[in-house]
Structures are given as structure tokens and as C-alpha cells.
Nucleic acid binder design. Sequence first.
DNA 1: TCTGGGGTCCTAGGACCC
DNA 2: TCTGGGGTCCTAGGACCC
Length: 405
Amino acid sequence: MKKIIFHIDVNNAFLSWSAVYLLQHGYQQDIRTIPSVIGGDETKRKGVVLAKSPVAKQYGIITAETLYMARKKCPQLQVFSANYQWYRKCSENLMQYLSQYTPCLEQFSIDECFLDFTGTSFLYKDYRKVAEKIRKEVKEKFGFTVNIGIASNKLCAKMASDFEKPDKIHTLFQEEIPTKMWPLPVGDLFMVGKRSEFKLNQLGIYTIGDLANAPLSLLKRHFKNQAFFLQEAARGIDSSKVIAKSEQNKCISVSETLQYDYKDEAKLKKILLYQAEEVGRALREQRMYAKSIAVTYKNAMFKSYSHQMTLLNATNLTDEIYKNACLLFDQSWREDPIRNIGIRLSDFTMNTQEQLSFFHEKEDKLENKVQEVIDKITKKYGTGSLIPASYKEDSRQSHEKLKKR
DNA sequence: TCTGGGGTCCTAGGACCC
DNA sequence: TCTGGGGTCCTAGGACCC
């Protein structure tokens, strides 16, 4: 049976979604048609380009560069702030609409997904017509456009959706690979980032075709185990499955860039408390426990480091996460000014590990009860509505975070 | 008025065991 | 009285994705 996979990608997702929002709320201009970007908050040192309009792109503005640089390139640039709540809603609506076409839908990020039509191919003899229908309907129903890539595997579908934009449908079947994919720069290949591209260029490999036809021995010398995978990708070979996602995350993390570089231990620990509550609640919502906990940092020099531990007993309680985070902090903080700090939980299990003694069990149950109540209140009134008294004073940053929600 | 945030995966190296 | 080697687990750091 011929496999048919779609990759659907929202064009300029954040910017398009904001454009739709603004138009729905009486804004006269469609910000997709002017030099505009969605940017983070500069006063909080988060001033980077998150998404750009096609016009802004013509000025050479790129994603993730500073707004300062972007304005230099285009002084009349209009900057709009991100509205994550709205983006999540747009994403949910889109996924729900697409899932009518096939149950086998894998959401790949907030604005992308794969659809597998293999099992339902008898329903859709002409997949091109289906793609055309989806493209049109999304535009009419939601007011933004998508690119659709069609191929016999995920990798090629993803590569295809990245061809000419916006509002386009492309195919990339095996026989089309030499003409459509091989002339592209090797850095365009999925999973080839800046580092790998540089290394490949050093070896005289500049296009995806060069990579597909390079001697494997040469690649192995420089990329070890990754070499085979890289070349397979360049040849359009990929056997990964579209997985209808209900499976859990492998890690949950939270991190925050601070308004200035903190050197004060007490302040840093207060941030950790906040974050412990956030990741803990996320974990409890999934009814999971974490065995591994890490504290991550970025210092003023932008150097990142981390420290982690494996817990004796898996946990999802804020208090325990916080205590262990503090322990890790004490063991690892180099007393350098901190720009960004975070907590990461991983190694999830369904239960806490230890066989609890009767008394411990009782205590544990009580703690869980307390936690449940706290979660309910937090859900209703927002993060930080119920926090230990020690955190009350001097939490400017946190209050601002609250306002955003 | 430099450089966000949330993820996944891989590798190297150390500790420890047999 | 010169220290092998395989396996496993853990940690730190980094590359890459959107």
C-alpha cells in the first residue's frame, strides 16, 4: 500500500494568528502586509524576533535576532507583542478541524502536524484533492494560510511543506528527490543545524545532493553514528511513524530570563520556588512523578550550566521539588551573576518508588490532599496566588508574570 | 540598547560492579 | 610492584527543533 503522509505547517504562525486577532478586534490594517514582527518584551530583556511578516523578511530580518538589530535593518518596522493564549487557541482549533480527516494525527509543534492517510486511503483516492480542500477550508474558516507537504514519509513531507510559501501544496515523492531536494543547501535538510552545516561545508558538501552522494566512510569519520542517519535523510529515507500523540512528555521544564543579572541567593531561590510550583503542577496534571530533577543556569556571559540528581523517591510535590532544587542550587551555583535560571523534571514514573510505611503513607496522603487544594486555587486564580509567606515581599518579577496571564 | 522558552536526543566521561 | 574489559547507570554539556 502506498503511504501518504501530509505535513501541515501554518505560514508565519505567530504573526498570522496575531493578524487575525487584530482584524477581529477592529484593527484596520492586516499586519501581514506591512513590515512587522512579533517580538518579546525588551524591557524584560526578551527583545527578540519571534515571527516576521513577508515584507519584514525582505529587509533581511530573521527569526530570533534582537529587535534592536531588526529596527536597524528596517526603521519603520512595527513590533507587536506575542499573545500565547490566543496562539494556543488557534492551534487547538486547527488540530481539531484536521483530525476530522484522519485519526492518525501527530502534532509536532504549536503550528505543525503530520497526518497519515495510509490506513484511510480508500476514503481518499485523490489525496491532492484532499490537500486542496484543506488548504481552502483553513483559509476560509480561520483566516490564515497553511503549507501542505505530501510525501510517502514524514521527513519528505516536512521538507516539501517548506518549499515555496505561503498557501501552497507541494509533493516530494521518491522520484522527485533529485530534482526538488538535492539542489538545496545542505543546511535546509531537517536536523542539519548551523554546526553540522559548517562541518559539512568544510568537507566540500554544500547541497543535500552532495550529502546524499558523499562516501559514507568520510561522513563516518566526522559524524560517527550520526553519519548514516544524515545520508539516509539526504536520500529521502525515513521510516519513523506518525504517532497519534497521547503519550506523555519525557521532560517538563521552566526557565526564565531575569530582568537583570541576579547575584542574590535569596532572590534566586525565590524564583526557584515559583518554578517548582509551576513544573510540579504540570506534572500533577499528568498524574506522573519525576525521578530526576535539574537546575539550569545561564550566566551574564551567556554560558550555560546545570546540575541534576536522581531522587530516591519520585515526586510531584512542589515542596519536595523546591527543596531538592535548592540543594542542587547550593551545590552548583558558582556565585556568578545569573541571567537565566530554570528547573527541569524528567524520568517520569506512574508511582513514587518507595514502599511507604504506614505513618509515612498517612503523611503522604495528607500532603497530596493539601497539594490538590492548592492546585485548585492556583488554577482558578493563577500561578502565585497561593505561595509560602517567605515569597511575599519583593516579587516584582513574579507579579508581572501574573499580569501577563 | 545585543542574544526567549520548551522540548528531544546524543556523547563523553566517571563511578561502580563483576 | 602499573593498573583489563564489558556493562550499566548517572551527570554535564551541547546540538537541534519549533
